[in-house]
């Protein structure tokens, strides 16, 4: 369950990328990426520049913020690459690599712990054949944990994309996952 804390790494290039399923240029293609990043950053520009909100806006649009975008982002915001890479590597929700089509987060907060989130997580790890922070083969799901969803009174909690499920039993998981292709 160790969280990824080392700097900006690019994960396995086999990961399916959200934006590259059709004939659009790859998000990391030099010039195209440059323009796209600038466009997105222009929409959230502030004075002084806000690196975190800029990265969140990029992730919202692109699905992740790849390490090779850092110099472009830094230049566009007028800050150093170290500052951008520092923020990017700090926050658990910022991703360097494209996640699977759906992100499953299992809440590991204390109320969920008391109510058996460990069993829920183990079940998902087995079913998805993926460990925490990993994407299952084929790219359908990325498995993740979170420290509290604030749903403690209806725990344990699993969040799939934006859908929050409470009082989750391991036996219900397979059916729940069927709704996400």
């Amino acid at each position: 369950m160790k969280r990824e804390t080392t700097g900006c790494q690019i994960r396995d290039a086999n990961d399916e990328r959200r934006q590259t399923s059709d004939d659009r240029p790859n998000a990391s293609d030099g010039l195209y990426m440059h323009e796209q990043v600038k466009d997105i950053l222009d929409r959230v520009r502030s004075e002084p520049p806000n690196i975190l909100q800029s990265l969140l806006a990029l992730q919202e649009q692109l699905g992740h913020v790849a390490a090779d975008m850092v110099p472009v982002i830094a230049k566009s915001l007028g800050v150093t690459t170290a500052e951008v890479a520092g923020v990017l590597s700090y926050y658990p929700d910022l991703r360097f690599s494209a996640p699977g089509r759906h992100i499953i987060r299992v809440c590991m907060g204390e109320s969920c712990y008391a109510n058996g989130c460990g069993r829920v997580l183990r079940h998902l790890q087995e079913r998805l054949r993926a460990d925490v922070h990993e994407t299952m083969p084929g790219g359908r799901f990325t498995l993740d944990t979170m420290s509290c969803a604030g749903n403690c009174a209806v725990s344990p909690t699993v969040i799939v994309d934006r859908d929050l499920y409470g009082r989750v039993l391991p036996s219900q998981l397979d059916r729940m996952l069927e709704g996400y292709k």
Binding site: M108, G109, E110, S111, C112, Y113, S147, C148, G150, N151, C152, A153
Partner: peptide, 9 residues
């Protein structure tokens, strides 16, 4: 409100 077990906020 990050304290696990809290949700009043």
């Amino acid at each position: 409100e990050g304290d696990a077990g809290t949700y009043c906020d």
